[in-house]
Design a protein around this nucleic acid. Structure first.
Length: 476
RNA sequence: CGGGGUGUGGCGCAGUUGGCUAGCGCGCAUCGUUUGGGACGAUGAGGCCGCAGGUUCAAGUCCUGUCACCCCGACCA
């Protein structure tokens, strides 16, 4: 590990410079050599592995199995579903030469795997006994974005994509809801992030989906981040890939499908949502190291004590690292681990050894206390739990404070020019109004909350009658 | 694809109207002293100045072309 002696820009002053600087300096990621690519470094990948582990357990518990489908998709597959191909065409990477020869049929590097998976599903499904078919894959996909941003928007990214086929629309819809709820739980319990889940408008939904539900979180600059999605695909793909089954009533029927995904973009959201002027602040449940122990001085009894504390924490399942480098000063180490966002720092030197105590400093609020060495395991566990809860509470409060209910377009515009955030307003659901609002305020509909109650009102833009409020926001 | 910028040791940069052996800071290596909020000294390693042409006695510097990347917009998880 080598650290440049550099300081990061203030988050409050320039969030995008702050973000890039933190990503690089905390060693989460680095730029790849080709445009728009990024290298996820071990520290960043460790976060992804924690996300994967938590989500993978949920997925498996729901009976969904992992599998792996090819990276290359024949061009003709993508063309079968009209909206799908139109949605993805501009951002495809296409292979035209293989083994030195021009290919007869071009190969698409998957932007998502609906087509290649459903081609297989059509062969694997023939009876109601084959349903539901529940398959997930952890993989990489490529979308040739015109504009890139570490983690949030890169040409290649990692994700999981779940793809299920069901006998009835009710079953499929239940799956769609299961997925979005699993994501919401994951965001709440691991990311310590709150947000809104709701239906996307037809302009914003997934290319080829009947309905899309997304989880939308709010970043500190007031912009919204679509943090994951769950799609009700209806029978759109079933019809073009001919996925039919013979039901109990002997009738041949098309399956009902869903797909849902969460990507490494979520790490970008995590960084933005929780970081501060000193760097990352990781919620304990996603911190590769939950505790860092920094010895003060170089006496052997100090090191011994540090090792014994580390041993006890490790035994009790805490992810802990001992920074016993002798060539870095105290201050340097403190700054380094703060930048990396480790939730709890333990300082241990002569004083602590003499008193049989440990000094504990919280990354989330900077509080410093002395605790007795004997109680260390209990105190650490409680503290980590407190930090996790505290960070979630901050996120919830931020969301509440930055969600406004607005009924006049003037106020709407003023808010989008100023503090931004989420705005709940009536919308007549016409694509025209949506486009105009976007043009004039940069805000788009983010979603209509799943539990949004019917309420008569007037469209914020045109004044036509509206039954629901929608959540608007400027998107990342 | 439009607008803006940058390419010079690992990173960040300087390099004047062309001129001599291409410099600085950080990082890196070795040794020593240090360590309670970004230590210090000594010594050292590391360069086709993005690439290709051209002008010139002479090009990091001027000209032409080209490639790449970054930032800001439109597309997007």
């Amino acid at each position: 590990m080598s650290y440049q002696k550099k300081f990061i820009p203030k988050k409050s002053q320039n969030i995008s410079e702050w973000y890039n600087s933190v990503v690089l300096q905390a060693e989460l990621a680095d730029y790849g050599p080709a445009k728009g690519t990024m290298i996820i470094r071990p520290y960043g990948y460790a976060i992804w592995e924690l996300i994967q582990k938590a989500l993978d357990e949920k997925i498996k518990a729901r009976g969904v199995e992992n599998a792996y489908f090819p990276l290359f998709i024949p061009e003709s597959f993508l063309k079968r579903e009209k909206e799908h191909v139109e949605g993805f065409a501009p951002e495809l990477a296409v292979v035209t030469i293989g083994g030195g020869k021009e290919l007869e049929e071009k190969l698409i590097i998957r932007p998502t795997s609906e087509t290649i998976m459903y081609d297989a599903y059509s062969r694997w499904i023939s009876s109601w006994r084959d349903l539901p078919m529940l398959i997930n894959q952890w993989n990489n996909v490529v979308r040739w974005e015109k504009r890139t941003y570490m983690f949030l928007r890169t040409t290649e990214f990692l994700w999981q994509e779940g793809h299920t086929a069901h006998a009835t629309h009710e079953d499929a819809w239940e799956m769609v809801l299961w997925a979005i709820n699993a994501y919401e739980d994951l965001y709440r319990d691991y990311f310590a992030m709150s947000g809104y889940k709701g239906l996307k408008s037809s302009a914003e939904k997934f290319a080829g989906a009947g309905d899309t539900i997304s989880f939308e979180s709010l970043m500190p600059d007031g912009k919204a981040l679509q943090s994951c999605t769950s799609h009700d695909l209806g029978q759109n793909f079933a019809k073009v890939f001919n996925i039919q089954f013979q039901d109990k009533d002997e009738q041949l029927k098309y399956v009902w499908q869903t797909s849902w995904g969460l990507s490494t973009r979520s790490i970008g959201g995590l960084i933005l949502a929780h970081g501060d002027d000193n760097g990352l602040r990781l919620p304990p449940n996603l911190a590769p190291y939950q505790v860092v122990i920094i010895p003060v001085g170089q006496k052997s009894e100090v090191f011994e004590k540090c090792r014994s504390v580390m041993g006890r924490l490790k035994e009790s399942g805490v992810r802990v690292v001992l920074d016993d480098r002798e060539d870095e000063t105290m201050g340097f180490k403190i700054n380094k681990w703060e930048l990396k966002g480790v939730p709890v720092r333990l300082e241990l030197g002569d004083k602590e050894v003499a008193e049989n105590t440990v000094t504990l400093v919280r990354r989330d609020n900077g509080n410093k206390i002395k605790i007795s060495a004997g109680s260390i395991v209990d105190v650490i566990k409680t503290t980590l739990e407190n930090i996790q809860q505290g960070m979630l509470a901050e996120s919830q409060k931020f969301l509440e404070n930055h969600t406004s209910v607005i009924d006049t377009y003037d106020e709407f515009k003023a808010t989008m020019l100023g503090s931004k955030g989420f705005i709940k307003s009536h919308w007549c659901e016409s694509a025209d109004c949506e486009a105009k609002v976007k043009e004039e305020t940069k805000a788009t509909t983010r979603c209509k909350l799943l539990d949004e109650k019917e309420e008569l009102g007037k469209c914020i833009y045109c004044g036509s009658p509206s039954k629901h409020r929608w959540v608007f926001g400027q998107s990342y």
